[in-house]
Design a protein around this nucleic acid. Structure first.
Lengths: 253, 253
DNA sequence: CGGTCGATTCGTACATCGTACGTTCAACCT
DNA sequence: AGGTTGAACGTACGATGTACGAATCGACCG
């Protein structure tokens, strides 16, 4: 019988294996991540993960209370990728935050998440905690009050999250793949767009397009994103703003 | 017969009504948005929207090629809410960007989107274009080159997006409702968390918790978010960084 | 006016999803 | 040996998006 404990986080329960467990949580998360990496998160279904493991679908429910928990497992596994070597935290807040932000972007890039499912509830897995600890450590030397330090850490996270999210619309594993998937659509969007632009209501967009057609402009923007530098530039601006706040705080009362 | 055109964006096709249409796209998007507002986006199903309109499910497919298009319609309708009165754009880039950012946050707040579905493809609806036009107009007086202006506009969008996303985990229409929904869970998370913290590996988190238990800390953070000011403070930091870039650009070579 | 034909409506069916429920089997404890 | 319980999973249900094709309607042509 054993009514499934569903109130607490999965990490609050002991991992099954008292008797003879075929799988570990890591193995399950690993299988799910492999599917997510190759076919996207929407391809991660209980059936699919189970069959990847060579198990019956319902077997998964012995290790995980529901799909949300499976996603939480995956989420925390990914958070592991944004832990940074400790020595990177020792050369001042600016370098430390940069290192963390870059690792975060890298991690969020490799898996485009089902935020709907995940980010509605606070997920605090082991790796999530390690990341949080590192983030607080990174800004420990700013001289700002605690709540302000927390504020800054959150803002950097938010920026990286938004950047990764936005980038999703302009990236694919491979440009040719993107072209293959969206090419026709983009072309048709271009036709519609041009008609609107000819109406004369969008002078700044017209200036931005610079006489090129929409697919070309899209291509330009995708290059802009994938060339790199854009993220670092933006992060730099944000850190400049933070720096100014720190200077102001340490000067004035 | 009439094979459904699926290659182009919905706005590239004429709206049905050549003969006698019961619904307009606006009515359909409106019904869907009403559902999204009251029960969340995940409650928006073709069946649900149709029945809201008093129509058969498949009738929707006469107005919309598939669910993605319905979501695009909703998305653009929401984008309408982040159009700003023109006079707000006339007092310098800083005020203009602030006005746009605040309107954006407001709009994104009211509907928590299924980004998975939406943001994977570039959506350029009529309102999306208006927003883009306004954004470019807002930074027209910065004196920066065109691609840099575009870069800045995007970054502000990205920050707002990330903020809204992160905020989602700390908000509910009403705190009591949040408490009701997550209270038990948060409490259980607290138990797990405390055990980890006692291990001694997380000194900065311990400092941050300040002797309070996890539910209390969560409450504190939720207050922090909903008190307002956090978003403006962050936006201010970002704009400070942009300002510095503008100064540097106009001074240097 | 009668007929035609496209525009519009929608019922049925199917594959896929998460998961509730209950059964089976083997390992372990006494 | 008998009982208990951890582990595996088959079956079934209700929800989803949507393909298919039949039914209905109304504007226009003759």
């Amino acid at each position: 019988m054993s009514t499934r404990e569903t109130t607490g986080p999965i990490w609050g329960r002991p991992e099954p294996g008292a008797r003879n467990a075929r799988f570990s949580r890591d193995e399950i998360a690993g299988a799910a991540l492999k599917i997510a990496r190759t076919d996207g998160v929407q391809a991660v279904s209980m059936r699919r993960v189970a069959s990847e493991l060579g198990a019956g679908t319902m077997t998964l429910y012995h290790y995980v209370a529901n799909k949300r928990e499976l996603l939480e497992l995956m989420h925390d596994e990914m958070m592991g990728q944004l832990i940074v070597p400790e020595e990177k935290l020792e050369h001042g807040w600016r370098e430390a935050l940069t290192a963390i932000a870059e690792a975060s972007l890298e991690a969020w890039r490799s898996y485009r998440w089902d935020r709907e499912e995940i980010s509605q509830t606070p997920v605090f897995g082991p790796n999530g905690m390690r990341h949080f600890e590192q983030s607080l450590k990174a800004v420990a030397d700013t001289g700002l009050p605690l709540d302000r330090r927390m504020d800054i850490v959150s803002q950097v996270d938010e920026y990286v999250l938004g950047y990764a999210e936005a980038e999703g619309g302009f990236t694919a594993p491979d440009y040719a793949e993107w072209e293959d998937k969206w090419g026709d659509y983009i072309h048709a969007v271009g036709d519609y767009l041009q008609k609107e632009l000819d109406g004369g209501d969008f002078p700044h967009i017209v200036e931005f397009m610079d006489g090129q057609d929409f697919p070309t402009v899209m291509h330009r923007m995708i290059d802009e994103y994938s060339a790199g530098g854009r993220f670092e530039r933006g992060l730099g601006r944000l850190l400049d703003g933070i720096e100014r706040e720190i200077e102001r705080e340490s000067a004035g009362p």
